[in-house]
Amino acid sequence: MNDVLILGEVKEGSLDMKTLELLGAGRKLCGDLGSGLSVVLMGDELSKAVDQVISYGPDKVYKLEHPLLRGFKTDLWVESLEQLCRQINPKVFLMGHSFIGMELGPRLACRLNTRLTTDCIDISIDPEDGVLLRTKPVSGGNAISVFKCPGEPQLATMRGKVFKPAEPAEGNGEIVDMVPEIDESMIRVESMEVVKEEIVALDKADVVVSGGAGLGEEDGFEMLDGLAKALSKSFGNVMIGCSRVAVDKGWISSDHQVGLTGTIISPDIYVAVGISGAIQHLVGMVNSKKIIAINNDPGCNMFKVADYGVVEDFEEIIPALIKKLEELS
């Protein structure tokens, strides 16, 4: 029995650790359903990732290896997953709400004529009818909705950092080699060039200093850089974050964006400077261990979720703060 299938992700030949969260989520469902857990891995060279995933005790690993599956060519990935699902008919299929899952999910749902729920923070099985209950924040996070949809596989993408990663487990998982029937002619969107940018790994930061529309102009981020530098003398990894408006204005690149459509983080300290605290921003940082807000509007929402607040123009506070931090160190 392999009723619950999850899509594992592979990064440079190794298993992406995000997959462990999906394994955790999948395991929970298997408990409810009394079924087995399978993982599908896709790529051109999978032996290492397969070995890694096996050590977490899935019942089956579908290994979809093909030279054309090198890199993420959506057309071929959707096609391959469609073929797999038609062959093995999983009851539930879970993916991460990652770049890959966001793109594959809807297209696969359409092809298999089933319904998808995206960005879920919980899943369970309704004991009455065995159908998947999909819990998802909606309206930016202003409400939590549980959806129940027809169709099979029951399809959901899962938000990261919500499920506890699976622990290594004994098992004699079976490896099933499958070669998808794909060829170049199925590629409708051609990749011309991959441009690597310097990307901040916000989820690895100990402290995030974040700026919003309140900075007024791009130069504000220079001031935040100064603060980040001063803090990095006492704290490990200090990085710069931002709100969406700062990206919209072109002040900073979108990899710095914190929030619903940016990165969801929970650093030791989050410093919000000139950020009002819109719900779509809050869902990205509200689980930070300590939150410090600097804003000249005492009524702004950020103060409601912060531990410490300073009501003042950031241009006054930040330089003074940098000086004080230096005196203290």
Partner: peptide, 9 residues
Amino acid sequence: IPEGYELVK
């Protein structure tokens, strides 16, 4: 894309 951007056609 996660690493930056991809130019596609």
